[in-house]
Design a protein around this nucleic acid. Sequence first.
DNA 1: AGCACA
Length: 438
Amino acid sequence: MSTSAQPQFRYTQTPSKVLHLRNLPWECIEEELVELCKPFGKIVNTKCNVGANRNQAFVEFSDLNQAINMVTYYASSSEPAQIRGKTVYIQYSNRHEIVNNKSPGDVPGNVLLVTIEGVEAGDVSIDVIHLVFSAFGFVHKIATFEKAAGFQALIQYSDVQTASTARDSLDGRSIPRYLLPSHVNECYLRISYSAHTDLNIKFQSHRSRDYTNPHLPVNPTAMDGLLQPVVGPDGKKKEFESNVLLASIENMQYAVTVDVLHTVFSAFGTVQKIAIFEKNGGTQALIQYPDIAIAAVAKEALEGHCIYDGGYCKLHLSYSRHTDLNVKAYSDKSRDYTIPISLAMQQTPAAGWQNPPGASAVGYTSSGMPQGHAQTSPVSSWFPAMPSGGHTFVSAPSTFPGQAYASSPSPAQPSPGVPQAIGTQPLHQPSQSPYYGS
DNA sequence: AGCACA
């Protein structure tokens, strides 16, 4: 019997390059593990969120001595190892390597590979894709293509965390029906990680976009595709048309903000300006597009639809006589997206409005660019897995004015929110923080 | 606070 001078070693396993960490905070992310462990050596592999409570993890060092250093350091340290203020207990794992069952598509990256099932390439516009994925953060670039697997898109975010939030929230979900052509019933998103980190987008076109580069040349023939659905097959005689739509909002039980309207109407193209006003006791809004064609598509697609499920905030659309709105660049009732944000902010500083990280093109008004969608908080504002019957479809980044969503469903009242078309499977669910969500 | 199957 050997007598160990150090009692904490008496019961420990034989040393291993792999450490077992427990009592981790819920959903502890890999970066936090790495931050904790990397002072002691090179980390070659990790496995987090292990165990029934997802509060355990494994970290594999490249060298056994590095693992020993970490264990011995914390064995004698007066400061325990901590993540998010929780004491983390560290031992040698009883295995000597982390078996990584991760297929390549499960290795997190900032670029998502999205397969859109059940549609032809022409059924889902790049603007709709952009709208859907912008709910989680600033989308830098999108490239779409057709492969044997079907219609696919690469979505580039600035960082891995944003990408993984989007993946966790959208994988397996369907794009809301009212953003799709009427002949498409469902289209499920299958999302994995791409090995790419930076997409090489050469043109703004109907197949690809670079939202970080407003001066990228437009491929004119490629852009034609955007305008094709304008003319209906019925050949009906057109009424007076305008690039500005007048929206009357019926049964407005819940706040409809400029941001909400921007999100909804951006699905069809660049929204240049928005103005909200009261008329005859009802709420109306003017939405300005750069051209009649886009306005026509939006009008056709949104007429009679409700912004929120349950018949709330039903839209009735007509063409406005206006062609160019004269609105305040940034107020709670109006927005001019053609003015660079920095300028608009100077005119009317508003709380909580932030630029997307890395978005130097603050004045860029490309289709549907959700300029308020930056997520500056390390905590996602999207709650990924709430029960159905949730809240709003329209994206609600943390920078949105709070009251629009604060008034959203209290348990006692019917949920507004999910657009009718997506039924009980809301794509997007705003929440201040996933950690407060349940 | 206590060892991973996908």
